Amino acid sequence: MSRRLSVLACLVTSIVLTVATATPAIAAPPSDWDYIAMGDSYSSGVGTSGQSGSCLRSPNAYPGLWDSANDPASYRMVACSGATTSSLRSGQLSALSTTTDLVSVTIGGNDAGFAETVLTCTLTSDKGCAAKVDEQLELLDEEIPARLDATYREIRAKAPNAKVVVLGYPLLFDVNAPSCGFAGMSIPKRKSLNHGATELNQVTEERVRAAGFTWSDVTDEFAGHGVCGPSPWLHGLTLLPPTDSFHPNGNGHKYGYLAALNSVLH
């Protein structure tokens, strides 16, 4: 063999070996995967049937639906309603290990003051709503990126072999319907809140990609199914239980979040 061919053969062999050793555990079929679902209420299942416990976890949230459809080797739900990056790091990371193959997570909405902002917009004027969203966007620029970076670093440290999928948040509102029902949001308020969600998703996507994780945007799946629209996949203002307010319903988890998770796993 000539020197040139010999060098080429070594190079090809080196590339093959590198690719082979870099292949993550996720390359195995789902039946072999160890799956951990982490995050906040959008992952725990608030808004769906079957919620239980202080974390309001439901088997009908998208992680449970994925588990039922794929029957992985193991599945554990540790997402919790109200979770922030801080509480995730202190209370959920222990579920991860070197054998974890798949992690899904939604996080950041509570750090950005999601509930407080929606409540303010419900009770105040269009101008007051816009001001509250702008206030939270300053926090988003100044503090949230570092919080997300720290969270993603710790997830990777605890689960070095896992495929980590970070899912975003839907735009809550349909902005075309002139009326949004009793105590519903005006169109300017809906646009302000959707703008806030768009900005949060953009910041999150940047940090997800910087961490080397997989980003899954759910806005396409939820398009046309916002609150106030003809076929909403999210609850509007809900009195019983009030925690369901502005969270995905069963269709939102099945056709929105589950579809978004599947889109990056196949």
Rank of each mutant, 00 (worst) to 15 (best):
R3V: 09
L8F: 07
A9S: 13
I15E: 01
I15T: 08
I15K: 03
V16K: 08
L17G: 05
V19C: 11
A20F: 13
A22Q: 13
A22S: 14
T23K: 12
P30L: 07
Y35R: 07
I36L: 13
I36K: 14
Y42T: 08
S43G: 05
S44A: 12
V46Y: 10
T48F: 05
S49L: 05
G50H: 09
G50E: 05
Q51N: 11
Q51T: 06
Q51F: 02
G53Y: 00
G53A: 01
N60V: 05
A61F: 05
Y62F: 15
P63W: 08
W66Q: 04
D67E: 15
A73G: 12
Y75C: 01
Y75G: 00
V78Y: 02
G82V: 03
T85P: 03
G91Q: 00
G91I: 00
L93T: 00
S94Q: 14
S97G: 09
S97A: 03
T99P: 01
T99A: 14
D101Q: 15
D101T: 15
L102F: 14
V103A: 05
V105G: 12
T106W: 07
I107T: 06
I107H: 08
I107S: 11
D111G: 15
A115L: 07
E116F: 14
V118G: 07
V118K: 06
L119H: 11
T120Q: 03
C121W: 09
T122P: 02
T122N: 14
T124R: 09
T124D: 12
D126H: 09
D126Q: 08
K127Y: 05
A130S: 15
K132Q: 15
V133T: 06
Q136H: 12
E138R: 15
L140G: 09
L140D: 00
E142T: 10
P145T: 06
P145F: 05
R147G: 07
L148Q: 00
T151W: 04
A159W: 04
P160D: 00
P160T: 02
N161E: 06
K163R: 14
L167C: 02
L167T: 04
P170D: 02
P170W: 11
L171V: 10
N176F: 08
S179G: 11
C180H: 04
G181V: 01
S186P: 09
I187W: 13
S192W: 03
H195K: 14
T198E: 15
L200M: 13
L200T: 03
L200F: 06
E205W: 01
V208R: 00
R209T: 00
A210S: 05
W215A: 04
H225V: 00
V227R: 13
V227I: 11
G229V: 06
G229K: 11
S231D: 15
L234P: 11
L234D: 07
L237V: 13
L240M: 12
L240N: 10
T243N: 13
H247P: 12
G250C: 02
H253K: 06
Y255H: 11
G256L: 00
A259R: 06
A260W: 00
S263F: 07
S263Y: 08
L265H: 02
